[in-house]
């Protein structure tokens, strides 16, 4: 919608002030990093308040992809957008725990619909206007 999905890019869709990323291919490392950059740019450009990353098509999440997801969520939070990771497969969840990888405090939901609900709920719980909470957190990671 916003961006033409060129080769080797994962499209980012805009739904109101929420960005939706549906990862439909197994990602190699560079593609994951490209997505991270594209998403951060899109959050800034679109003044997004929420991000849904749908990984239900991912059959494997190793420590690299896990770290990219966790870091992307942390970056978006600093920019005032809450990230929800959606659709982690049961086998992937079990493997992540075996691996010792935690996604930190990144919220998760089973489906995109439930993820949207979670974003609405989070916003209702913190009805701060944009800019309010971000300011004292501007130190870089």
């Amino acid at each position: 919608m916003m961006r033409e999905p060129a080769a080797e890019r994962i499209p980012i869709l805009k739904m109101g002030d929420v960005l939706l990323v549906t990862i439909q291919v197994e990602m190699h490392d560079q593609l994951a990093l490209t997505l991270q950059n594209d998403l951060i740019e899109a959050i800034i450009r679109e003044h997004a308040r929420g991000v849904l990353i749908d990984i239900s098509a991912l059959e494997v999440v190793d420590s690299f992809i896990g770290r990219v997801i966790r870091d992307t969520a942390a970056m978006s939070k600093l920019l005032g957008a809450l990230t929800v990771v959606v659709g982690i497969r049961p086998a992937v969840a079990i493997t992540l725990v075996d691996l010792g990888l935690s996604l930190g405090d990144v919220p998760t939901a089973m489906t995109v619909e439930k993820g949207m609900e979670l974003l609405r709920f989070a916003r209702a719980a913190a009805p701060q206007p944009a800019g309010g909470e971000g300011e004292h957190e501007r130190g870089s990671q």
């Binding site: 490392d29 059959e59 494997v60 190793d62 690299f64 086998a91 079990i94």
Partner: peptide
């Protein structure tokens, strides 16, 4: 099974990287 497939592929990905 699916869970073991996922474990093996993930381990391979870690070591390959």
């Amino acid at each position: 099974g699916l869970l073991d497939q996922t474990r093996i592929v993930t381990a391979a990905s870690e070591l390959g990287r």
